[in-house]
């Protein structure tokens, strides 16, 4: 933002607030991306676990609870995995909705700010 060409555009409190909002949203966007990635990894891991479970010969498998491996029946583990998958996919969905909202808000702010400041402001990532 410092390579201004010296053309003076008055910055009002409202503009400042818009810039603040944009900064926050941008931050949030990156945080959301990270969380979404973690959740997607979780989805993959749960899926892998389910597939392994189908192939399992033993009627009993070791299931990690906290820091101990509990010997549980395959059926019960299956139930637990399904429950985890359900929670995980719901969380993923709401995160993705939130991300879409953030993107929309950022686009609206970009329009306003570029409209007023033109080339004097840079809202793009490097």
């Amino acid at each position: 933002m410092q390579q201004g060409d010296g053309v003076e555009t008055e910055v009002t409190w409202e503009d400042q607030q818009n810039i603040n909002a944009f900064g926050r949203l941008n931050n949030k966007f990156h945080e959301l991306e990270d969380t979404i990635k973690a959740k997607k990894d979780m989805t993959d891991n749960l899926e892998d676990a389910s597939n392994e479970l189908i192939l399992a010969d033993d009627p009993e498998v070791r299931y990690l609870v906290g820091e101990v491996f509990t010997h549980l029946a395959v059926d019960e583990v299956e139930e637990r995995l399904e429950a985890l998958k359900e929670v995980n996919s719901q969380e993923l969905e709401s995160l993705q909705e939130e991300k879409a909202e953030v993107i929309a808000k950022m686009a609206a702010l970009k329009k306003t700010l570029y409209g007023k400041f033109g080339d004097s402001i840079n809202l793009e990532e490097d």
Binding site: M1, Q2, G4, D5, G6, V11, Q16, N20, G23, S120
Partner: peptide
């Protein structure tokens, strides 16, 4: 953000 914007504005004003 406010401080950064202020820095940019003072700088621009000076230029």
């Amino acid at each position: 953000t406010i401080t950064e914007v202020t820095i940019a504005r003072v700088y621009n004003w000076d230029v």
